[in-house]
Amino acid sequence: MNLTLHIWRQGGPDQPGRMVRYDVKDVNEHSSFLEMLDVLNQQLIEKGDDPIAFDHDCREGICGSCGFVINGEAHGPLPKTTVCQLHMRHFKSGDTLHLEPWRSRAFPVLKDLMVNRSAFDRIIQAGGYISVSTGSAPEANLTPIPKPLADRAFEAAECIGCGACVAQCPNGAANLFTGAKVAHLNLLPQGQAERETRAVGMVEQMEQEGFGSCSNFAECEAVCPKGISIDNIARMNRDYLKAKLQGVNRLVVVGA
C-alpha cells in the first residue's frame, strides 16, 4: 500500500509550522497507524532528517497519550478507536492523508504532532477527586450502589484524557472531558459531599484554561475513543447551575 501523507511539522512551541508532504511506500496493512509512522521515522533518521514527534505510550488505546487529527477527524476515521489501534487495513493504496496536531489554545503545540495537555490535569486538580485520605475509608461494602448506577459511573469514568473531544470540537471546548469526571464522581454516593464544589471548581478551571464553550454539536461524542456520552455534559451543567443558584463558590484547598 502506498500513501501520500501531509504532516504538520513544527520545530518547537514558538516556531512556525507547516504541512510537509511524505510519500510512503509498501505500507503493511496489518501495521497500526503509529507503526506506519515508526517505519517512516526510521527512514527519515537514516536519511539524516528529523523524525516526526508524536506522543504515544501503551499502544493499546488506554493510556490516552496518542492522538492527532487524520483528514479532519480526531484519531482518524474509525469510531471508538485511538490512532494506536487504528490499523492500515482501513485505508487503501493511493489515499492522501492530512495529519495535524490537536488544535486548541489550551493545548499548545510542543513539536510536530505533540501538544501540551496539562490543562486537563489542572481541571482534575480543581475538584476531580473525592477527598478521602489514605486510611480513612470505611468498609467497602457498607455502601451498596445499584448496579445500573455503578455502570453509568463506570461508563463516564472510562475517559482516557486523550483530548480528542477538544480537538474535534469546533469551539475547542473541554466539556466532554470535564463532564465525564464530574458525572463519574457526582453519580456515586461517595461523591455527594463535594458535588457542588466539584462542579464549580472544575468548570471554572476549564474556563481559565481557555477552552471554548459547548454548542451541543456532539462532535466530541462522535470521535471519543471510549464513546463517552454527552449526557455527562448535561449532568455537569445541571450540577454547576444548581450550585451557582445556591451561591456555591470554588473551594480553596490547603495542604496538611
Binding site: H6, W8, N71, G72, H98, A218, E219, A222
Partner: peptide, 8 residues
C-alpha cells in the same frame, strides 16, 4: 485545521 472535510 488546514484540512477538515469531516463533520459529525
Amino acid at each position: 485545521y488546514t484540512y477538515r472535510p469531516q463533520v459529525h
